[in-house]
Design a protein around this nucleic acid. Sequence first.
RNA 1: GGCGUCGUAGCCAAGUGGUAAGGCAGCGGUCUGCAAAAUCGCCAUCACCAGUUCGAGUCUGGUCGACGCCUCCA
Length: 460
Amino acid sequence: MTLFIKNTLSGKREEFVPIDPDNVRVYACGPTVYNYAHIGNARPAVICDLLVSVLRLLYPNVTYVSNITDIDDKIIKASNESGVPILDLTRKFEEIYNKDMSMLGVVGPDIQPRATEHIDEMISLVKRLIENGSAYEADSHVLFHVPSYSSYGMLSKRDISDQVAGSRVEVESYKKDPSDFVLWKPSTKDQPGWDSPWGFGRPGWHLECSVMSEKSLKIPFDLHAGGQDLIFPHHENEIAQSCGSIKSNDPSSFSKYWMHNAMIRMDDEKMSKSIGNILYVHDLIKKFPGEVLRLTLLSAHYRQPLNWTHETIQQSRKTLDRMYRVLKKAESFKVFEVSPPDDFMSALCDDLNTSKAMAVINSLVSSLSKAKGEDAAQFKSLLLSSAGVLGILKKSPDEWLGYSESDAADNEEIQRMIDARDRARNEKDFSLADELRDKLDEMGVEIEDSPEGTKWRKRQ
RNA sequence: GGCGUCGUAGCCAAGUGGUAAGGCAGCGGUCUGCAAAAUCGCCAUCACCAGUUCGAGUCUGGUCGACGCCUCCA
């Protein structure tokens, strides 16, 4: 099956043709670790995770790299404000990030390089750029000279000349061109820094991704992913640096394809500190199962803005509840190894059309619900293998539905009430039975009468 | 001001020229003592206008509206 993706570089939907089919290489910009990851940070991680799992079904080898940016002015600021040493701070949030993402079912990259462990490589990249005339030293800074790279603006589709004119950025006097950007900047004694040919200093933004992608994947690699807000200037500058270092004016000599996910909105508002509507994965995960959050993130196409509301989360929860209920019913059927159905895969291969893929899953769920015997085993297997690609339905139905809640003291009480209700029903004392059901309902216990007896679960 | 994206039912959301997927909610039926669950059925002409075409949600132009980037940002 052929994968098609919308390539930001061309602006078109393109067939994905790997540079080396024996090793597909993907890079995604990882987090700057100075705080908890918010739900917006999780979107690219989940999308990329899905992309990689699709690629793995199509190609024998996939190398997925996503970095940790652990040197940055925001980190310095956070460290100063909290009094926590930089290394402690960055390691702490790196660990939390990885844990939070794994709660969302993210498998994670094969390689997760840290910026601070690639300073030597950064310095040598800067050296190369100076030597070949792409960069220059000025006022203790090293700057990339944008006019030296003629394809600048190709990714973001902007013309720098009219960008700068309307821009509100103050142009530093030492810049040869207003659009030149920093590769290396000086650090004071109390700022983190490294010795370099240009003095004690630290790397500018952008540099780490160029260096770490080249080191771990070699350039050109196949695909670079990230949020839409990174297109400019971050990714544009990465291209300029990396292509500049080999004096190529073809942006695809860095990465052949570029994928960008749209932003998440909070109740139709931009997520921002000033509005105070930032939702951290760390907190969300306490309120909602990871699969609910993951499914919500996958409920809209990755290039569409996703409006994060209580309602959309509840919908995902209901969807999963139904799926697990059907799986519970089909518990006795053996699952065997199957590939996901073609219509499911072709949906995902169509630029990760998760909505369409979910439609296939829904139809498998309803087929399973109605099926008997061998058919049921077949549908169940197809359902679980498809859901596996999306990273959902990984729990046992009992665990999900809460049938096996082991809050012993509570359970005994609930069971006693259910038994009493059953007795009342047998004696046709329906008003007592209903009264008991209402009481249970108030306690957050949902009951279902079935031929096998009365089942109950705690409402989530 | 420049560049880009988007506007599909009450809500979420697919649809890259051939006659509107899927889900949630709602309504009606079956099942149930009643519920719940399950199951069956019903529920849109695609912001607006003008074009291209045998045919347009899908292409072109315009209008209105929403949003993103241009400055740290997934």
